[in-house]
């Protein structure tokens, strides 16, 4: 491969396009309630994690997030993510019956690491949930994903979700991030 500046930029553009295409498709599946298809985008060894965030003094900002393996809002593998999806189809999942209307805006996509096997991708999100006649929730945050090359294209192998909220202002998080 040529090492010209243009070639390097082209490679970065291609990677970014690939990552965005994956993330936008994924968001469309979730917003479109195509959850089984969403599950098929996950690797079998996926780790899906949202730590608890706290307000700390500036000099103790290292305490801001709970540590891996400890308390978290989500600390899921393929099995528990599958249960979250199955929940929606067995009946009596009251948090999603009637179903929520969600809209995910995925922005600031940046491939921070890449090799032949995977891309590490950061993105910002705004997840808006509209429910019933007048209920609205919004979540802003940052995600750090590992997208792994697999048969049939990229798959999500790791997702770390860092919400901007400390106290979750919604009555539940029955949606996926």
């Amino acid at each position: 491969m040529s090492s010209s500046p243009e070639a390097a930029i082209t490679q970065r553009m291609l990677r970014k396009f690939e990552a965005e295409e994956f993330l936008f498709h994924e968001a469309a599946l979730l917003d479109g309630r195509r959850f089984d298809e969403w599950l098929s985008l996950l690797t079998d060894d996926i780790h899906y994690w949202m730590p608890i965030r706290r307000t700390t003094q500036a000099r103790e900002v290292a305490l801001e997030f709970t540590a891996p393996g400890g308390m978290a809002f989500f600390d899921d593998d393929k099995g528990t993510l599958t249960l979250r999806v199955q929940r929606l189809s067995v009946g009596r999942a009251w948090a999603e019956d009637p179903p929520s209307r969600t809209r995910r805006l995925i922005t600031n996509v940046c491939v921070v690491e890449a090799d032949d096997h995977s891309l590490t991708v950061q993105s910002n999100f705004h997840l808006h949930r509209s429910r019933l006649n007048s209920e609205e929730d919004t979540w802003f945050g940052r995600r750090e994903d590992v997208l792994r090359r697999a048969e049939g294209g990229l798959k999500l192998a790791r997702r770390h979700i860092f919400l901007d909220q400390t106290v979750i202002l919604a009555q539940n998080m029955s949606c996926l991030f």
Partner: peptide, 9 residues
């Protein structure tokens, strides 16, 4: 343990 889950209903 470190971490109190907090949310509003």
């Amino acid at each position: 343990l470190d971490g109190v889950h907090k949310n509003r209903i």
